[in-house]
Structures are given as C-alpha cells and as structure tokens.
Design a protein around this nucleic acid. Structure first.
Lengths: 223, 223
DNA sequence: ACCTGAACACCGTTCAAGT
DNA sequence: ACCTGAACACCGTTCAAGT
C-alpha cells in the first residue's frame, strides 16, 4: 500500500521557510491559542503570507501539520509502554501521558476535535493511536486491572474528557488533570463495575462521527 | 443588595425586536453552531443589524443572553431535585440533566467556557449553580452514596467533561453521554475510592481561572 | 428612543507580478 | 519553482441619517 505520495523534496529555501513557519506557528499557538492571525505568523516567520498559503493551502492545514508532529510523538511514546510488566500501570500512564500532552499546549485539543482533522496524516495517526490504545487496554484487562466492558474508544474519549475537565482550570492549577484521571480510573476498576446503560460506540460509528464533523465544517465555511 | 440595575422597560417595538433576535439566534446557533454571522441572525429576525448591536453591544452579549435563559432553566430544574428521597439518585439525575442539556444544543458548552461569560447574569447563575450542586452533593455524601473526597467543583467539571467526551460522537450516538456518566459515577462510589493524587480546586481558584480566561479573551481581541 | 444600512477595520485566501 | 504584497470576500462593529 502506498502510504506517502512520495512528494519530491522541496527546494532548500522552501524547506527552510516551511520550518520557520511551523516553528513560528507552534510558538504563536502555544502562547495565544488558535486564533492568532496568519498574517502574524507570517510576520514572525519573516516570510510573506503568500508563502504560507503556498505551503499550507489553508490555515487548517498549517494547524494539522503541527498536530501531526505532536500526535506522532505521543504515539511513539505510547509504544514504549507496551512491554511494561504492570499492564494496569501502563494503561494508567498512557492515559496520563495523553492528558498531560493535551493539557500542556492549549488549542491542540480544539484542533483535533475541530476541522483540522481532514488530513491524511492525522487520520493515519488516529488509527495507529486507537490500535495502540486497544493493545494497552487488552493487556490491562487480561491482568484484571480494568473492567472488561470498556473499549479502546471509551479510553480515548475519556482521556480527552479528563483533560477537558481540567483545562478550564489550566493556568491556575496546571496539574489538575491528575485528580480527574484518578477518579476516572477508580471507575474503570473491575471491583467498581456496575452495568452500563449505553453500549460502547463502534469503530464504524467513530468514523461516521468524524465524517459528519468534517461535512459540518465544510458546510459552515461556504455560508 | 441590588441584584438587577432595574432598567426601565423597553418600548413595545424594541421589546418585540429583542425577542425576535433571541429566538432567531437560538435557532441559528442550534442548527449551525456559534459561527453563524450576526448578519444572518439579523436577517432571520427581520431587523437591521444595527438594531441587533443596539440591544446586544457585542456578539458575545447575544450569546450570553441565550445562555442565561438556558442556564436559568437548568438551575430551576435542579432545585426540584433537592427534596428527593434518594439523595444518591438525585445527584445522579442532576449530573445527567446537566450532561443532556449541554449535549442537546451544541455550542452552549463552548459558549460557557468561551468569552461569553463576562456577564453579570451568567456569573450570578454560576454561583447559584455551584451552591445547588454543593447541596445535592452533600446530601448524597451523607447518604453514603458518594465518596467524601470530592467537591461541588469536581462534580461541575466532571459533568462538563462527560458531555465533552460524548459530544464528539453527537449526531451519530446522541445518548452516549449516559455511558460515560455511568462510568464516572462508578468512580464516585465510596467503595471504589482510592486516594486522589491532587487536591480539589478551591472556589478561589475557580474564580481566578475564570478571571484569567476573560483577560486572555480580551487580550486576543485587541491584537 | 429606536431603526437602518452604508462604512470601517480585520481576517483568511487568491493571484498577478516578480526572481 | 518559489516568493511577495496588493486585492478580494467576508465578518463583527460603528455611526450618521432617518422616524
């Protein structure tokens, strides 16, 4: 299967500008959130904004490129957890890593759940992310550390929500996500399990939801 | 204490226009989210957009007015839960009501955590909301239904995060929040309780976080 | 006092003109 | 091929002119 379209390497100056843009954008987003203007980013990178739009046809594409960087690092970090002895602790740490990552640079979460996910790289990483989470979860369940009626999609959504709960307090209590991770983990213990009134979302439904969100964003843009 | 500045009643046509604007805006936001243009709202309400800005000096003020409506209804509904026999079930239902409310009209959540909360009415309701949650939680804890190391702020943040977890899937699995409410509730049971690694945020910290968010929004607007 | 739409500042995006 | 900044369409907001 062809994973990358194998685009020819960029000219030296173009590659340099690309990096400058990514660095400037990452810094600007980290400071002020996603609503810094592209003009400001181009100015900080010391290139014309036409150059920015040549490399990243849309602001969302620029955001997506940064998300791919971060997201890739996250997945790589997660893979090192696969051969831990304590499978329960490994899953716990994985959820913590996800929450901390999202907690650190505000805006990333909004970007992933926003319209920036119309991107081949992000989609591939998303699948890899789910697969990894699935394996960590399975091991934790086999070790008896986690109830068996939750799925990788549950873990993914819960990790996101933990950091969402804490993100309102970020800046004042930066580590608050730890508290809600602990609380959610107590609910994931087999001893605590009570029947769930709603079935787990299927992978197919996750795909449908992502699709729906994309079409919604496109529709909104045309009005 | 003076709760309302007691503004003189509006002229008949002005009052009528105000209602039309609120209705049109609520409908438009429910359909397309918060990024419908004010021009579109004014058109749907059949008034000039100058009229809109006379009544609501800023788009955020318009959003805030709608949030006050919804939020007020929510708090009123919650108060009826105070004299339930089963205090544990009452808190459970309260968290469900909050999650369902936020889940139904998308955008409301974003608005509350957004810059629209620079509004006296919303601040007052927010305090009332926390006080109500506190009382429901206290009763549930005394009944032995909920662990004692969680606070009303925890419950508020967790309620929001539950619906955030499910909101990504909204449109495909509208009731998914029920699943994550169940999971979180399992974690709130006294039997499940393990020590929490981070202390609960104080009311003062909540205030600071709201303040910080407001200043951040103002700062972003001036750039 | 209230209503209105033209006018303004700003933002994301495009494109003709340059190397 | 790539770079650039003027130009465009659109959005939130203002305001002079009307009743």
């Amino acid at each position: 299967v062809a994973t990358q379209p194998d685009t020819p390497p960029l000219r030296a100056d173009a590659e340099r500008n690309r990096r400058r843009l990514l660095d400037a954008a990452a810094a600007a987003f980290a400071e002020h959130g996603l609503d810094v203007s592209v003009s400001e980013i181009a100015r900080r990178a010391e290139v014309g904004k036409g150059t920015l739009f040549r490399r990243f046809p849309t602001k969302d594409d620029l955001i997506a490129a940064i998300v791919v960087d971060r997201f890739g690092g996250l997945v790589a970090e997660g893979k090192t957890l696969l051969d831990r002895d304590d499978a329960g602790a490994a899953l716990r740490e994985w959820m913590g890593v996800c929450a901390r990552q999202q907690s650190e640079d505000r805006g990333l979460l909004a970007a992933v759940s926003g319209s920036a996910l119309d991107n081949a790289g992000i989609k591939a990483l998303h699948a890899e992310f789910l697969e990894l989470t699935h394996r960590l979860l399975e091991r934790a369940q086999e070790a008896g550390a986690v109830r068996r009626d939750v799925t990788a999609v549950d873990i993914m959504l819960l990790s996101g929500s933990i950091c969402e709960a804490a993100s309102n307090m970020h800046g004042v209590v930066p580590d608050l996500w730890r508290r809600y991770l602990d609380l959610v983990l107590d609910g994931l213990r087999p001893e605590a399990a009570h029947p769930l009134s709603h079935p787990a979302p299927t992978l197919e439904q996750v795909g449908q939801a992502m699709q729906a969100k994309l079409e919604g964003a496109r529709h909104g843009r045309q009005r």
